[in-house]
Design a protein around this nucleic acid. Structure first.
Lengths: 96, 96
DNA sequence: CCACTATATAGGAAATCTACTATATAGCGG
DNA sequence: CCGCTATATAGTAGATTTCCTATATAGTGG
């Protein structure tokens, strides 16, 4: 069965800015939203929208710290997706 | 560095019909295009368009056998993506 | 409370995606 | 060559994505 959650995670990752955000978050425990605005060449509201997509896909969680909001990566959905794709890549497909 | 090839693979996978096609192909060495048309509830040209997306992402290859065209899965890009996402899920991020 | 910083939301334009119908192309069998 | 099946392409409508500017909301410090 093709999980709609899995599709949502794939869609969330399938954008250069969002995958870039995930990559940065993978390397550090927590990053403030404003750091992403500096890193990528898009406006602050655009970054905010991308972060929302990642949040709704369950890939990140937030924590307010004073004025700023810190994002951290949820590694479980990434690991689950990696495991599933890995299984497909070695031939274990179509498990209903 | 965020590879644009990787983004293309993610985008190709991020659709229920295309992921379904990949799942079916993962379970069998080769499947005729017409079998997909039976399997999914979309028209033949729509299936053909989805197969084109998968082809252009390097996820499948084709072989003509008489009138029909057989699709098979390229497992390398899937394995590469799985490995990359797996690395992210255990903290190895941002390798420039 | 006011000004300031950080972040999110609203509204809208342009680009892209997804699906359809109609049609073209490729190979097979008579 | 003709008709048939299998697949791809063209053209197009509608939905979704992506980005922007403008504005709202939330928290901090004077």
């Amino acid at each position: 069965m093709v999980s709609s959650v899995e599709i949502e995670v794939l869609r969330a990752l399938a954008h250069p800015v969002r995958l870039g955000i995930v990559r940065k978050l993978a390397a550090e425990p927590e990053i403030c939203a404003c750091d992403f605005t500096d890193e990528f060449e898009v406006s602050q509201p655009t970054i905010s929208a991308h972060l929302k997509v990642l949040r709704e896909a369950g890939l990140v969680t937030t924590r307010r710290r004073g004025t700023t909001i810190c994002y951290s990566l949820n590694r479980e959905p990434l690991a689950a997706l990696a495991a599933d794709l890995g299984a497909l890549s070695v031939g274990e497909g179509a498990l209903t």
